[in-house]
Design a protein around this nucleic acid. Sequence first.
DNA 1: CCAAAAGTGTTTCACTTACACCCATGA
DNA 2: TCATGGGTGTAAGTGAAACACTTTTGG
Lengths: 229, 229
Amino acid sequence: MPFTYDFPRPALTVDCVVFGLDGAELKVLLIRRKAAPFAELWALPGGFVEMEETLAQAAARELQEETGIRDVFLEQLYTFGAVRRDPRGRVVSVAYYALVQSGKYPPRAASDADAVEWFPVSATPALAFDHAEILSVALVRLKNKVRYQPIGFELLPPKFTLTQLQRLYETLLEQPLDKRNFRKKIQSMSLLVELDEVQKEVAHRAARLYRFDKRKYRQLEKQGFNFEL
Amino acid sequence: MPFTYDFPRPALTVDCVVFGLDGAELKVLLIRRKAAPFAELWALPGGFVEMEETLAQAAARELQEETGIRDVFLEQLYTFGAVRRDPRGRVVSVAYYALVQSGKYPPRAASDADAVEWFPVSATPALAFDHAEILSVALVRLKNKVRYQPIGFELLPPKFTLTQLQRLYETLLEQPLDKRNFRKKIQSMSLLVELDEVQKEVAHRAARLYRFDKRKYRQLEKQGFNFEL
DNA sequence: CCAAAAGTGTTTCACTTACACCCATGA
DNA sequence: TCATGGGTGTAAGTGAAACACTTTTGG
């Protein structure tokens, strides 16, 4: 079916802000651009939306193509439509953010051997286009959302210790938390399953491992339960 | 500068979910479509994004053109990109939501004398495209956001009584609130300025009028204050 | 046995909740 | 004078915050 309104139209892209946790540091995955504009500069992974894919599919596809990352938490962030945000012409970009276990994706996992690297969010290089703004919006969103949605777990391996979880929240909220109060609170939500396993190869008492019970969360959610740290 | 990547591209539109409060009822403004597709059906105001305007400008322009409404709270909601959401072809739509004092915009204020009408959000007619889904996402957003951002005031006239404000929250949160506790809490935030005026023409004791102090809010916000009902 | 992190309870304080009566006004 | 909503304080309960020591393990 030919399109009735054939006005000039903006090009449409997706960009992905990929967050990972490295010890007590929040990092973002960037790729080095090969082509103009902004060749040699670092940028968010992303690209043009194709005609037969949804926006989320486009984001997932670009992420996979440019960084090898797939099957991760991916959520729409915001759509950026400043008129001159791309020097090539009018390009509107739908930004997504992803949460990954950075350990699973070492720096050079990219499929096309391109330059892909993790940077601390507090020390990123100069970025192409308006990607610095996109990153900043993503950071604000992540820091807020982590308080009232259990998305932080996406940044941890499936089995984790309570101390790891606490460090995660301390990093994202940028404030120290009391160990006993944190444990009391998180355990009282009964969203964590205590495993019959402990940490290995640590030079001190081994901590118990837990996993997040997603099924239980969905169930409680329906009953009006609100996660809140 | 000619565009380097000249692939086929989705068309881009904006749609606006306009909320208003009518007494104790939340309403949404719809327009009746004249042209195909979905001629005669009700739809959200919206239209195509032009090449030299931002997304927010496009939303504001369409709102003004189709309903006469301008200078209101308008915030990006979400971008809808299902492949077949428009029968004419691939159309991606950036949705916005607006909060207006519905009293200022009686049903037929539209500039082009088209059919424009307020409907209770709980009793809307069948909607064109995926507009029912957009409305539903907007409702969820509004109901959540009103808890932790003082945006509810956008639905009230500049001068309002505490009872009006309480009714507003009761409507949006869908739960009754205790009068004394509500007043204590809202006043303790010191975001309301007590005016030297009272209600007129009521058949009972006239209530004191207040206004929301936006300047004060911005100031407190910077100091880490969090609005929360 | 030392270093390092794991694990564990109680008290205090602040905030939230529940609750009922008198007041002012116009009809 | 009556009907209608406006306006006000206190007590009880619940959840958040502060806080320090013992245990386990590997080196």
